[in-house]
Design a protein around this nucleic acid. Sequence first.
DNA 1: CATGAATGAGATTTCATTCAT
DNA 2: AATGAATGAAATCTCATTCAT
Lengths: 210, 210, 210, 210
Amino acid sequence: MAVRRPVRTAADNGGAPKGGSDRRAELLRIAARLFASRGYTQTTVRDIADEAGILSGSLYHHFASKEEMLDEILRDFLGRLLERFAAIEQAEQDPRKVLDLLVQHSFAVIHETPDAVALYQNESASLSGQPRFAYVDQWGRRIERIWLRALTAGQESGVFRADVDARLTYRFIRDTVWCSVRWYRPRGRFRHEAVSEQYLRILYGGLVTE
Amino acid sequence: MAVRRPVRTAADNGGAPKGGSDRRAELLRIAARLFASRGYTQTTVRDIADEAGILSGSLYHHFASKEEMLDEILRDFLGRLLERFAAIEQAEQDPRKVLDLLVQHSFAVIHETPDAVALYQNESASLSGQPRFAYVDQWGRRIERIWLRALTAGQESGVFRADVDARLTYRFIRDTVWCSVRWYRPRGRFRHEAVSEQYLRILYGGLVTE
Amino acid sequence: MAVRRPVRTAADNGGAPKGGSDRRAELLRIAARLFASRGYTQTTVRDIADEAGILSGSLYHHFASKEEMLDEILRDFLGRLLERFAAIEQAEQDPRKVLDLLVQHSFAVIHETPDAVALYQNESASLSGQPRFAYVDQWGRRIERIWLRALTAGQESGVFRADVDARLTYRFIRDTVWCSVRWYRPRGRFRHEAVSEQYLRILYGGLVTE
Amino acid sequence: MAVRRPVRTAADNGGAPKGGSDRRAELLRIAARLFASRGYTQTTVRDIADEAGILSGSLYHHFASKEEMLDEILRDFLGRLLERFAAIEQAEQDPRKVLDLLVQHSFAVIHETPDAVALYQNESASLSGQPRFAYVDQWGRRIERIWLRALTAGQESGVFRADVDARLTYRFIRDTVWCSVRWYRPRGRFRHEAVSEQYLRILYGGLVTE
DNA sequence: CATGAATGAGATTTCATTCAT
DNA sequence: AATGAATGAAATCTCATTCAT
């Protein structure tokens, strides 16, 4: 007999876009967790089913394929991220303030949905080139452009140093911010606000005392 | 039973990393390239054999298992890295100079052996916990300690700002440096020396003009 | 355990084959169409349910199994066919007239219920041996005997040539007639009466001019 | 332990086009037999492997997929058939002689490679539309044209009756000839030459005595 | 050293069927 | 009558590994 684990309320779902059932969202959460910790390929559908307390075949009542789960998780994550970044860019004029908010929001997202972030970090490279996941690259580029506009605007207005390449700088920042998902622990010594703050301190002021 | 050929010390390879006098070394280079680009699990032994122009079964004349290839590549890479970092620490007193050299050497390593770096970046997490690969964590921690000593020494001597956590700072730096393997192109616009230089400029001086 | 609903006699369907007063009959018509076009095994119960606008599980309110649908379709078809062939044999004396009517009726049946014919053509071989479908072979043999009696009677009375084997001749005729379901189009250039007529012309008179 | 059945000589292979090994040809023969008797979809790769005395996974050492086996069998069969039909058309002038030879060769093919014929008969419909099997339709149409040319040539020269549609006549003949694979037994009462002869007798002279 | 055939475990997926609601 | 979730068996396919030649 299958052990049925209590179904969590849909409340913590953050408003799933697809009208799908509770069960579907719950399964996606389980999948995201496993994909993030073991890697997409190393996670078997049986792993997911086991965690959900059902048989692996039963997953296909909810999803057409393992890939569809990955797709749905990434689409949801990236869509929301892009939306939020665009809103930040629109709401603020000051490049430095924009960068502040972009960084802070990123660390907050890592805090809130670490699985999706880790998944994106680890799998996006191998997804590149697959038609189904074309949006991953596309939306990634749109996000890059938002950050780049803030950086170059800051350089032009003189608030950011101009003797560094903006694209390079973006990559440095992006890697530091998102890679932190690997070591950040929500209940660790530093909460995400502190991490943001310390990072921005170094990023803006530099490590060396004058 | 697998036929284990005597494992050579890293020394006789280290002399001629590109020389490829040996079939074994050649196969490892092919494996590293494939592991790095597709991921270890996604690379099949047939992929490696195909690239080498032999049948997959024939690989087992050279290596006891696919895992042994991974092991050998990582052991060689990490061993050399640790050795070099230790040498830098010993040779220099000035914490800032040490950090300079650590960063510069790291980017140089990414330039020279991007496959091994990518492999380490992508696979070390899933290797954690496997007895055979215990050294990966161990040597990683030893490397961390070298960087941490430089950072805290710098903070104590007043050359590095003291209002940031050294461990956090290490992670920021480490992630930026090593993650660059994902986008760094040896023949791209920036050579590794330029990347080092720009990164150190921001790291030391900060992004914001005073 | 499957819930078996009382099986209706073919009679109360036979009166209104196209009427579709009933959900059950409607579902059978959909199933027959799909079975005929994709093959029984390749048709999933979900395919049938989809076409009917319900969920696959709901089909089991109407039928105990997928097999029951096949059974019902074939039983209805073969029963009716046998009945009609027997009636033709009884009504006519002249072997040639009997053969005329058998052929004409066959093409008419193909015209009217192509799905059932195709189903019988394609699946009867794999049904052979299954107890549940023993009647398929049995009724098929009864039909064969009707045709054979007409052929041998014709040979004995001298109207049909006696230098060919009757059983072989039956097979030639049967295959030509029933295989036409594969290419016959109800709205095509030839209506079934024309097909009958052309076939009988060749069958009786031969292809070669005197 | 797997029971190894004796490998047949390649001699009865009729000159396989692909240079492949003996084993491959042997496996294809087994597959063809099973595909023909159970149907392609109903035959599992395990069935084939069992018959060959190996494990199902081992089949994939020889073939990329179950579909590849079907492909290879059909391509070989149809290619040879088309070639032979074309040769007959070229060698003979007299339409009646051409038709004679086409019919005789067809029954001979049924005698010699009944599995491939049955496979073609049963599966070609469901293959229609699949890019990989586009040649099945194409080559089938080329074969049709050969038969049609013989029929219309005969009608024009007055040797075949002109009051029947040639295309319809072709279908009647084709269905009779090829469908016989369902009942023809190589060791039965009639050898294929006798079947040919009886069929041609009826086809040419008609069933009715003048 | 290399081939080529095979193993055997395990992966994803399919699908008829059941059943509580 | 119908839904929606689940079962469970079986299918195709993958792949690291073995081993006789």
